[in-house]
Each structure stands twice: as structure tokens, then as C-alpha cells.
């Protein structure tokens, strides 16, 4: 968690804070593979493990934004590979709702993304994270970020 009292002191390039939710069986494994394979990835992502992408509750995502996340990524197994049969279908539906919600709310569309990453796709994991980070850097800090949180 960010220190409420800390202030930005350096002149370095701004680094976004990204919260990423990974399902236990695929995407979290993907994160592991990325680490073991030593694929380059930016230090912008905080990973939170959930058992299945279907467990993703809109509350988690909204809460991440309110806490000051500049972007939220969530990922699970590729369609057809979910270890709980159809959790990722459910995630897809929720994603549609959340996208519509985030759009109406006036947060930039780029701040929320769903992607599928399997346990063996370490390189792809690094790529998704890198691309998303670049995307967030372009849109800048989230307007929902509470004051005093960097």
C-alpha cells in the first residue's frame, strides 16, 4: 500500500501503479514463468492472485482505482482452459459491464484491460505487462487517485 504521507521528490520518469489480478492456475503461473525466464518487465505491477478470473468481483477493480491504481489488468486462462469450467466466460461478462461502467464514469478506456495468459506464457506475460504500462504512461496518473498518494 502506498504511503499517504510520502511525496514525489525525484525527477525521474513517472511510473504508474498497476494492479494486476491473476488466476491461480494460468496467469499466476505465467507471472512465475516470466520471472524464471528473466523476461524484461517494468516494475509497475502489483500482482494479486485470485483462484479464478471468474472470482474477479467488480468491487476489487473499483477498489483498486479508488485506492489510487492508475490501471487495472486482469487475466485468466485462455477461453476453454479455465480450471473451473467457465470462470473466464463469467469474467468476460463482468468485463463488459466494467468497461461500460468505466467509460460512463469518465475514466479512460485504456485503464482497464482483460487478457488471457497461460502458465507457460512467460514471455507473453512480460509483453502484456510492458504494453499495458506504456499505455498507462500515455494517459498519465488516474484522476481517481486520492490526494497524497503517489
Amino acid at each position: 500500500m502506498a504511503e499517504a504521507t510520502a511525496t514525489e521528490t525525484t525527477n525521474e520518469e513517472w511510473q504508474p501503479k498497476i494492479v494486476m489480478f491473476c488466476c491461480n492456475w494460468c496467469s499466476y503461473g505465467g507471472a512465475d514463468s516470466a520471472g524464471m525466464g528473466r523476461f524484461q518487465q517494468p516494475p509497475t505491477v502489483r500482482v494479486i492472485r485470485v483462484m479464478c478470473s471468474g472470482r474477479m468481483d467488480p468491487v476489487f477493480i473499483l477498489n483498486a482505482f479508488l485506492e489510487g491504481a492508475d490501471g487495472v489488468l486482469f487475466s485468466g486462462c485462455h477461453i476453454g482452459d479455465c480450471h473451473y469450467v467457465n470462470g473466464n466466460y463469467k469474467a468476460t461478462i463482468k468485463y463488459k459491464f466494467l468497461k461500460a461502467m468505466v467509460n460512463e464514469l469518465g475514466l479512460e478506456d485504456e485503464r482497464l484491460k482483460l487478457d488471457w495468459i497461460s502458465a507457460s506464457e512467460g514471455e507473453r506475460y512480460a509483453q502484456v505487462v510492458t504494453e499495458f504500462t506504456e499505455q498507462i504512461k500515455k494517459v498519465g496518473p488516474s484522476p481517481l487517485k486520492p490526494e497524497g498518494v503517489i
Binding site: A4, P58, V59, L62, N63, L66, E67, F97, L98, A100, M101, E104, L105, P143, L144, K145, P146, E147
Partner: peptide, 19 residues
């Protein structure tokens, strides 16, 4: 006691009532 720019209460309700 949340120090947020909007209350989570409302955001959750907005999603829950969408359908």
C-alpha cells in the same frame, strides 16, 4: 472513513444496477 474521491458504495451500486 474511506479517503476516496468517490464512495465505493456508489460505484458498486452503479455496476450492480446496470442490468
Amino acid at each position: 472513513s474511506d479517503t476516496y474521491k468517490m464512495s465505493l458504495f456508489h460505484l458498486v451500486r452503479f455496476v450492480h444496477l446496470m442490468d
